[in-house]
Design a protein around this nucleic acid. Structure first.
Lengths: 123, 123
DNA sequence: AGCATATATCATAAATTTATGATCTGTCAA
DNA sequence: TTGACAGATCATAAATTTATGATATATGCT
């Protein structure tokens, strides 16, 4: 997972390096949505909190796969988890996430033709 | 590059598959900002259009590396290019991009302590 | 035309991310 | 306390992405 192997260098020596490590963190964060499985999870959670089981059913993917992605999303700060009995419910942490999703989707929609017409990708 | 090897399946058979391929495109798009080099480029361009040479100098990276990332960003629809003499100037395509950057940065800032405290990553 | 500058493209090696299957932990109920 | 259900974690294999170096294309100058 994106999150398991991240090894962010903290306390950098210089200001410039500090900016670099900020960019790294920032990029990692964006990476949270740069995977279609995680994107589907986040979009599913826009409607409200869901248990892991519900998410698994919705995606039709293996338990460990979903669980690993959830760990990643939690890690990036997109979601948080709360145990309720044996189930664990996940929900979006921040309404700014929704806004990011909306904006991104709008830009993608506007560029769909451009992307589809791209000659560098043998669609 | 993220973009060179994308092989998006178009005209899917079912509605569900159609949604899948939309999510894939969407995730690819987010992937445009999920790399610190590309993020730095995009942030550099927030101040206005820049030639490739200026971007190279700013990042201190090799020409081909920068050029490849620019191709990727152009591809995703983040930037577009315009030739001016021998130089090629890049600029952000859409003001929604800025908004996405702002929101993401704000969320990262708010979660920085959480992320730094994470035990799954040996910082 | 010939050459230098500016940028793009491409093959492949290196690095990173994702999927899988096995195993571990926690909760509840009998 | 045993067993079953719900989920998390981990090692490793598979897939994808990035960096590098070489080469190609485009523009302008002499």
């Amino acid at each position: 997972m994106l999150c398991q192997m991240a090894r962010l260098r903290l306390r950098p020596r210089t200001l410039e390096a500090s900016q670099d490590s900020a960019d790294l963190l920032y990029a990692k964060f964006m990476g949270g949505l740069a995977d279609s499985t995680r994107l589907r999870i986040v979009r599913f959670l826009v409607d409200g909190p869901r248990s892991v089981g519900e998410i698994i059913d919705h995606l039709g993917m293996s338990q460990s796969r979903v669980s690993n992605h959830l760990a990643c999303l939690k890690w990036c700060g997109y979601v948080d988890a709360e145990r309720q009995g044996r189930a664990v419910f996940y929900r979006l942490t921040d309404r700014r996430i929704r806004k990011i999703l909306e904006l991104a989707q709008a830009v993608v929609a506007d560029n769909a033709s451009h992307i589809a017409a791209c000659t560098r990708i043998p669609v």
